[in-house]
């Protein structure tokens, strides 16, 4: 109990932002794994699912301990950014396929919602993790 109290005292609110980002990237991975990717195996790459999970676990573990807490967001960013890139490489051909006939209201309807949602979530997670990486998660010690 004391450990958690100290933890909350010694960490800034960035801890929660980082956690939210880690959750966001895992949700994106789940949507990809069980939605868009499952329906379109040709656009599926398991690494884009595994990396957010690794990132989430690593972030949670690293942020718990003071010596490693400031590196947690770096690892989270590496994982989310790599997941985003792998996802983009694996699935970008969906755009070519959908807009084969040109970009118009009819073809826009063909765009897979799962693809768009995943792309947006991965991207937001990668950018946010990069921002968080620059912010202090360990509170400065106040000298009495």
């Amino acid at each position: 109990m004391k450990f958690w109290k100290n933890l909350l005292k010694e960490r800034t609110s960035i801890l929660f932002v980082g956690c939210a980002i880690a959750v966001l990237s895992v949700v994106a991975a789940m949507i990809y794994a069980f939605g868009f990717g499952a329906n379109n195996p040709q656009y599926f790459n398991a690494a884009a699912v595994a990396l957010p999970i690794v990132g989430f676990v690593a972030y949670v573990v690293l942020v718990l301990f003071k010596p490693t807490a400031n590196y947690a967001a770096v690892v989270l960013w590496v994982c989310t950014f790599a997941a985003f890139l792998i996802y983009a490489v694996a699935s970008y051909m969906h755009l070519a396929e959908v807009f084969y006939s040109g970009i118009n209201p009819e073809t826009l309807k063909l765009l897979d919602k799962g693809f768009v949602v995943c792309m947006a979530m991965y991207l937001v997670a990668a950018i946010a993790a990069n921002v968080v990486m620059w912010l202090k998660v360990v509170r400065k010690e106040v000298v009495a």
Binding site: E97, V98, Y100, S101, E106, T107, K109, L110
Partner: peptide, 13 residues
């Protein structure tokens, strides 16, 4: 008589 000419599986209308 419109359709969406597309090679996506079952994607035309």
């Amino acid at each position: 008589v419109w359709q969406t000419s597309n090679t996506r599986a079952n994607g035309a209308t």
